[in-house]
């Protein structure tokens, strides 16, 4: 049974696209058939983060409007054959996304894939509401920072009221993904702790992604961090989160890129 997963946050810049690419690739790495969809019409970036920007021919809106078949718009990842991307349109505006059109595309995708990962745009406008509308599961990406936590709270409210599941009286499964977390700063009292954020938002935790240079390095390379460096701290953290999404019980840890003596001597220059 295919699952529609929305990666959302309200606030921009917290790591939705990074997380969509990393989780999508991690799920596909485990053998599942995965498609990641960019809902950020007009400001697409998932193609760039996944390294497929040169290969975009058709997009989500072409499919919604019937100008292209789904099979023509899907871009198969060059590293993982069971991972595909459905890019957003760069030129049209968000009003082109109709609820019926999106539902039709998702139903067609449900037949071909195990996971449909919807990368939501920031904000609470049409693109964001369309991305969450038909979701079974939501991953709320949050930074340990006041404005991000506040916006996540707002998004959780929308997940509980504006989604198809919520309107039918069902509860949408919601998970918190805490990103850019710095355990040392949290320990020193300079950053909200995991428990602070969990207490405020009161939704279950799916993973903690530590602040890491590897995330920028992966996006520079156009490769999800789980493929670019699977053994890095964020790579391992995303793999663990993907396993939890699949229902496995994995103890929550905060992986770290702790360097040995060699790394300390030579690694610092990268920063």
């Amino acid at each position: 049974m295919a699952k529609v997963l929305v990666v959302t946050s309200g606030k921009g810049g917290v790591g939705k696209t990074t997380s969509s690419a990393a989780l999508g690739a991690a799920l596909a790495h485990g053998g599942d058939k995965v498609v990641v969809i960019d809902f950020d019409v007009g400001l697409r970036n998932l193609d760039l983060v996944m390294g497929a920007e040169r290969r975009v021919v058709f997009d989500l809106i072409n499919v919604v409007q019937g100008d292209a078949k789904l099979s023509q718009a899907l871009i198969r990842d060059k590293r993982l054959e069971n991972l595909s991307l459905l890019p957003a349109s760069q030129t049209r505006d968000k009003d082109a996304l109709t609820e019926e059109g999106v539902a039709k595309v998702l139903n067609e995708l449900r037949e071909k894939f195990d996971w449909i990962v919807c990368d939501s745009p920031a904000g609470i406008e049409r693109g964001a509401t369309m991305a969450m509308r038909h979701a079974d599961v939501a991953v709320v990406v949050t930074n340990p920072e006041v404005s991000s936590v506040r916006d996540s709270d707002r998004i959780i409210g929308l997940l509980d009221s504006k989604t198809e599941k919520a309107e039918k009286g069902d509860r949408i499964e919601k998970h918190l993904l805490l990103t850019r977390y710095d355990p040392a700063r949290a320990e020193r009292g300079e950053m909200l702790k995991v428990d602070d954020v969990l207490e405020i938002l009161s939704i279950p935790l799916i993973g903690i992604i530590p602040e890491s240079e590897e995330v920028l390095r992966a996006s520079n390379m156009g490769s999800p961090v789980t493929l670019n460096n699977p053994s890095s701290a964020p790579g391992r953290a995303y793999f663990d989160a993907a396993r939890r999404l699949k229902g496995e019980t994995v103890e929550i840890t905060i992986p770290s890129d702790k360097k040995g003596l060699f790394g300390k001597l030579f690694g610092r220059r990268a920063a």
Partner: peptide
């Protein structure tokens, strides 16, 4: 419509 495949590579 189904029997058309379009591929693109921008360099």
């Amino acid at each position: 419509h189904d029997n058309v495949q379009v591929k693109m590579n921008r360099d």
